[in-house]
């Protein structure tokens, strides 16, 4: 554990835990809306932004934020117009994103391949103090949006038509959610990589909801699982010399398997136990 005294290790750990906090608190809305794979798609689009940054000599994080936010808003507008043609349009956007990214990174300089690997699979140990400041700032912004808009986003993702009749600014909220997704994807790409970004949004939520009963408890537990998996992933990968992004995701998946087995066992035990007749609440209670 003397590794923890190393500044690069501390930065990697802090960056990973910020993502462990932000990704599931956003991801829960995507799962609730059955858009679990959208993070993956936005990740593909972000790669074009990375390529653009490397080619023009700008910080790839900034260009990736801008390009993936544009992509996310585009996806949202396509989704809003109707689902049938949306599916194919989304596919085009995603493949265009990854092809464009690979092409632009290749054009940028001689070290194209290693940069590509860094963004596709993550490289938390190279997080610089400036990177950490960007990740911290954007992570705080994501968390603030998730905190202040939680009731509205819950209503939106639970029942979009009802939200509309409630007079909520449905389109604005949808675009807010899309842009927040893009920002989360971009800050997570440094740690887990663009190809595994979506896992940090979805897997902690999937793990938590096996054992929870409500939305707020699911969100809380998902964040705890996300932070633990991200922190644990950095530590384990440093000790075992494995890929940090993959280690993080596999840890989160291990938690999912554990909670799923626990939930199944509990369900079976409850069914086996004799049901007390009085515990069934009456459907209607008549007064007077």
């Amino acid at each position: 554990m003397e590794l923890l005294t190393q500044p690069f290790m501390q930065r990697a750990l802090i960056a990973a835990m910020i993502i462990g906090l932000a990704a599931p608190s956003l991801g829960i809305y995507l799962v609730q809306r059955r858009l679990s794979l959208i993070g993956d798609g936005i990740g593909h689009v972000a790669l074009t932004g990375v390529g653009l940054g490397l080619l023009t000599g700008n910080d790839p994080v900034y260009t990736a934020v801008i390009v993936s936010a544009l992509g996310a808003v585009g996806v949202e507008l396509i989704r809003e117009r109707g689902r049938t043609s949306g599916d194919l349009a989304l596919a085009m956007l995603f493949y265009g994103g990854i092809a464009g990214g690979v092409l632009l990174v290749g054009l940028s300089d001689g070290s194209g391949n290693s940069s590509l690997m860094k963004y596709l699979f993550g490289s938390p140990l190279t997080t610089s103090p400036e990177d950490l400041a960007v990740i911290g700032g954007l992570g705080a912004a994501v968390l603030a949006v998730m905190f202040f808009f939680r009731p509205a986003l819950f209503a939106l993702c639970n029942d979009e038509e009802y939200a509309r009749v409630s007079g909520l600014p449905v389109r604005t909220l949808n675009i807010l959610l899309a842009v927040t997704t893009a920002v989360t994807v971009t800050i997570a790409m440094r740690t887990v990589g663009l190809l595994l970004v979506s896992a940090m949004m979805v897997v902690p939520v999937a793990a938590a909801q096996q054992v929870t009963r409500g939305f707020v408890t699911t969100m809380t537990l998902a964040v705890v699982i996300g932070v633990s998996a991200a922190g644990g992933g950095i530590l384990v990968s440093a000790e075992a010399n494995t890929a940090p992004g993959a280690t993080t995701v596999l840890l989160a998946l291990a938690v999912f398997v554990a909670t799923a087995v626990f939930a199944a066992a509990r369900h079976r035990l409850r069914r086996a136990a004799p049901q007390p007749v009085a515990s069934e609440p009456p459907d209607v209670v008549l007064h007077g």
Partner: peptide, 11 residues
């Protein structure tokens, strides 16, 4: 009926 009501539990 209840909206799409995905896997995420809600009380």
């Amino acid at each position: 009926r209840l909206g799409a009501g995905s896997g995420v539990p809600a009380t």
